[in-house]
Design a protein around this nucleic acid. Structure first.
Lengths: 174, 174
DNA sequence: TGTGACATGTAAGGCGTTACATGATTAA
DNA sequence: TTAATCATGTAACGCCTTACATGTCACA
């Protein structure tokens, strides 16, 4: 029944860069990562706890002021292993989230084979999608009358097409 | 504590076009609507039941073969009212779903004031976002060295920027 | 001395996915 | 006659949002 649990991998990816607190992670979702994923602190803190139980992360305490002690989380060797395995799997296409972009975020070597494979697979996937969409456009809106009768639908379809074209251009640049 | 419950509005919008069965609605999410929203039949059937209890929809039965009886759902006057109220509200910006595109899908009159207002508000919103992203780009990737060190992050940000530009072009065409 | 950012949690409940279940109809 | 599609449900469970709750620290 297992669902994707992608938040876990994002956290591992972020901790793989450097040790962070729950608060730091929360902020990351409001800035960088926020561009393609969101999460609240109320989701992050319990998950970190669970991940620590599963030995994917550990934490050390950092004294800040007189009283405040931060918990800074670190990725464990096992966590790294799990993260890298996930990164290598083919990204799943989900309507709501783009797992390809998510994985790309964590790939920093421009010349890695993984990157090349992922990009070319993604190009193929997107080309199929674009093809499907342009066919839909031809079928549903062959003339101005139909375009007018369902203007909203027409606009949305046009949007999807231009989005895919733009996506492809971007992919080909990489 | 109420969450958005946008699926309900999509169903109302689809039934507002014409009477449909749960199966028809399910199929709609695999084609047209699937471009920007997804839903499974296991979510749709119980929701239709609940919506009928709340008098947003009703159903009539249609005999198909010897034994099979379909339930075709119709929007009620109250359902229409609720749907139109939702359509008029400013779309909320959510990281996962684009409520603007969703609402646009249901607007068929090219010259409606509602469309004009929504589009211009959306343009403003997207321009702010684009601005914010280009600033981020300047801050984080001022030179080739930094772009190389975090190549994935750089690509993702470039993607977000080109996506927003593309979105704006599309909006301005409408 | 008070405001805003930092910091960390828990609880309730709705939303969405996956799986389980069953049966009818149509067309090859 | 059998496979694909049509058609309609329920159950389990994880994910996510909203709200509740508390306290520290830096700076003006």
């Amino acid at each position: 029944m297992a669902q994707k649990n992608r938040l876990q991998y994002i956290i591992l990816g972020l901790l793989n860069i450097e040790s962070k607190t729950g608060y730091d992670l929360t902020k990351a979702f409001d800035s960088d990562i926020g561009e393609f994923w969101s999460a609240n602190h109320s989701q992050i803190y319990p998950l970190l706890k669970k991940m620590e139980e599963n030995e994917l992360v550990s934490h050390h305490e950092v004294q800040i002021g007189q009283k405040l002690i931060k918990k800074s989380y670190d990725i464990t060797p096992n966590g790294k292993k799990i993260f890298l395995e996930w990164l290598k799997e083919a990204p799943e296409m989900d309507n709501n989230h783009d797992e390809f972009v998510l994985k790309l975020y964590f790939i920093n070597n421009k010349n890695s084979d993984l990157l090349k494979t992922m990009v070319s697979e993604q190009i193929e996937f997107r080309e199929n999608k674009l093809n499907h969409l342009t066919n839909q456009m031809k079928d549903k809106f062959p003339n101005a009358t139909k375009r007018k009768a369902q203007y909203g639908h027409f606009c949305v379809l046009k949007h999807a097409i231009s989005r895919e074209k733009n996506y492809l251009n971007w992919l080909k640049e990489i």
